[in-house]
Computed example of a mutant assay.
Amino acid sequence: MTGFCTRFAPSPTGFLHLGHVASACHARDRAGETGRFLIRIEDIDPQRCLPRFEQSLRDDLAWLGFVSDGEILRQSDHLPYYRGILDRLRCQGLLYACTCSRADVQVTAQGRAPDGSLVYGGSCRGRYHAPDQPHVWRLDMQAALRLLGGSPSWQESEGARIKGRAAEFGDVVLGRRDNGVSYHLCVTCDDARQGVTLVTRGADLFEATSVHRVLQDLLGFPEPRYAHHPLIMDEAGRKLSKRDGAESLRALRAKGLSAPELIALARQVL
């Protein structure tokens, strides 16, 4: 099925690799000739997102022939917008300030969420005003789910409706210390304001959809469909990752592989 508005949303934290090509192909294919394929740069991490990686990202996508059907959105250009959304949730009494360190969270964690992250123990729950010390803003998940009447489900494209597991994530961070916003918040807001009707991304983000559906319903955003594609794995059985030194497109190109050849390799997992 094609004709959706889709998006490819890499982060400029390193050079693109074959897994990124697979994601871009998946999004563009699902848009088809009658839909829209958008490129978004998710660069809210000020420590890891670097200008040289962003320029390389743009160069690689142009070489591969991926062109956005609209302006390329850079998340770092819209921080005030995301912070305004946080204010809306604070006004609803759904956020609280958390001063716990990473070590504190590890000690008091209540197990693991479906995506493998630690479930916050709730030590700071109920602190609705910002303290005079570094803090994050957490979503009071139980309060949010009471307001919504339960955990929202979602429609996986060409598949069954998936039951949400948001309660198992606990109180996720929506406002980080370094820039005031988080991935969960930004990606949900951007999909809505860009009119994305089919969220295409890797299977490693399947579980996070439970959290994003909660935010969509809390903020009155439209519910898109989702299409999570298989991942390209390395020889050790791990997904290709910039952190693990996955061979970059630049390196593959230097070896003589053409853009059509790289795209053909990426399509083998789709």
Rank of each mutant, 00 (worst) to 15 (best):
Q194K: 03
Y82F: 15
G84Q: 12
A27F: 08
G150N: 09
M1S: 14
Y96L: 05
R127V: 13
H26G: 13
L139F: 10
Q155I: 07
L94S: 09
V196G: 05
T197F: 00
A266R: 04
R36H: 12
L240R: 06
W137C: 04
D87P: 00
T197D: 08
L219I: 03
L145Y: 10
W154R: 09
C49W: 03
R127L: 13
Q92M: 14
Q47A: 13
D217F: 09
L174G: 02
L38P: 07
Q142G: 04
L148P: 03
L174N: 07
I41A: 08
G32W: 12
G116K: 07
R58H: 07
R243W: 04
P230C: 06
Q194T: 10
F37G: 04
C186L: 11
C91V: 05
T200E: 14
A246P: 07
P51M: 06
L89F: 08
C91I: 01
T6M: 01
S182T: 11
W137F: 11
V136F: 00
D190G: 04
L219C: 04
F37N: 01
C49R: 06
L185Y: 12
I44L: 15
L94W: 12
S56F: 00
V199D: 02
L86S: 02
T108F: 06
E156V: 10
S11N: 09
F53N: 03
R225Q: 14
Q268G: 10
C189Q: 04
P12A: 05
S123F: 12
P114Q: 09
W63F: 12
D104F: 11
S258G: 06
T34W: 00
R201W: 11
Q106S: 15
L205E: 01
V172A: 00
E42P: 11
G111D: 13
D77T: 10
W63K: 12
M1N: 06
S101W: 05
S117F: 04
F169K: 01
C124L: 09
R146N: 14
T188A: 15
G93V: 04
L240E: 11
D69F: 14
G93L: 03
R193E: 15
T34Y: 01
S241M: 00
P12C: 05
D59L: 05
H78P: 06
L89D: 11
G195N: 10
R225D: 12
S117D: 13
D190V: 09
H26F: 15
D87M: 04
R176K: 14
R193S: 09
Q268R: 15
P152G: 08
A24D: 01
V211R: 06
